[in-house]
Design a protein around this nucleic acid. Sequence first.
DNA 1: CCCAAATGGATAGTCGAACTCTCTAAAACG
DNA 2: CGTTTTAGAGAGTTCGACTATCCATTTGGG
Lengths: 211, 211
Amino acid sequence: MRIGELATVTGTPVATLKYYLREGLLHGGAATAVNQASYDDTHVQRVRLVRALLHMGHLSIADAQRVIAAVEDDRVDTHTMFGVAQDALVPAVERTSNRYPAARAEVERFVERHGLRVRPEAQVRQMLADTLVAAADFLGLPPGASITTEGWDAVVPALMALAAHEVGNVPDGLPRAAMTEFMVDGTVVFEVGLMALRRMALEHASAERFT
Amino acid sequence: MRIGELATVTGTPVATLKYYLREGLLHGGAATAVNQASYDDTHVQRVRLVRALLHMGHLSIADAQRVIAAVEDDRVDTHTMFGVAQDALVPAVERTSNRYPAARAEVERFVERHGLRVRPEAQVRQMLADTLVAAADFLGLPPGASITTEGWDAVVPALMALAAHEVGNVPDGLPRAAMTEFMVDGTVVFEVGLMALRRMALEHASAERFT
DNA sequence: CCCAAATGGATAGTCGAACTCTCTAAAACG
DNA sequence: CGTTTTAGAGAGTTCGACTATCCATTTGGG
């Protein structure tokens, strides 16, 4: 297919596709002439991934580039590639609070307690620490007060079951890039769903308490 | 305190605070002279809320205005106010897919199945439907294929327990605006934490499957 | 009490991100 | 064979979120 058809299929303007090409978010089509290239299903899927990252995941172009780069890196195994993609999804925040050492230590204990196989350098550890710090700051805890994760313990088994279910859904035998795209898109899309469920649960709990 | 001190305490430039005042994100201080006003703890807390909404929650100024307006509306009870604030937190997406009717119907069944006390008009229902549609589109399901939520069922009890715990943590006897601020901020901050946990669970599941 | 520094309020300017437009020479399609 | 479409590259636009400037007060240390 040519770029016009790709635009129609994905519902994305040609000018925007060209922009994605320039930014390296979309791999070029097979050149058939000096000003012609042909695109295929991998391009359709990629455009969907990019749009999911940008619109559902609210990533910047720069962050999306990091994810795409990880997806395209063929040198490492699926699990590592997924880890890199995950890391790229973690939003950057300024980390000035002096609560971070305590928060990081609490995260290590949490990971240990639940026997989670999470890389020591995984950005997601930092992400959880960010939350603990923000919560402590917001609650106005005194600087030395202990930061705990015990409120989270109850939800871990359910999340692990959900994650196992989701990872189990990744089809076998796909090219690795396609598998990683699958997992990254799943990460973003199901994340939004989980947030929706959480908010439903909050509204329910609020109804129980306040009405 | 004067605006300079508010700026110091919250780590926000004076120019930005003035911008928030102009945009209605921050209520004005008590005027003590034609060019003097004094600010108090409610302003400090509000600035923290605004920054949590903008930076952790990645809301636009316009969306944050809707949340703040709900927080400031004294005419309704706490639960309703929280619902309005929740609705304002749901990001806007373009909804062109023809899968929406099926997705909405599935959401209704889901809410019914779990006995969730969620308002019929709550935006969070739409948010979950968005996810189902995005997932179906991404997986390339044929247009008529059924959209289900059964993968989510397992996680609901844990989320409800977590939400009950969190709502239980809201202190009693605060002014209602403060209570709502508390819950909104909690929604945003703990949401980030939940996403972090989910990603840890995904990495764990990926390790189990791919290594 | 006096003057540099801070303030409230308003307007204008900046900056980066994410597109969107324009242009040119070369296919492609009917 | 003339109208469309295309690749590629650069310039332009739009919008959101600040940031800077200005002025007429007001404050607060010496």
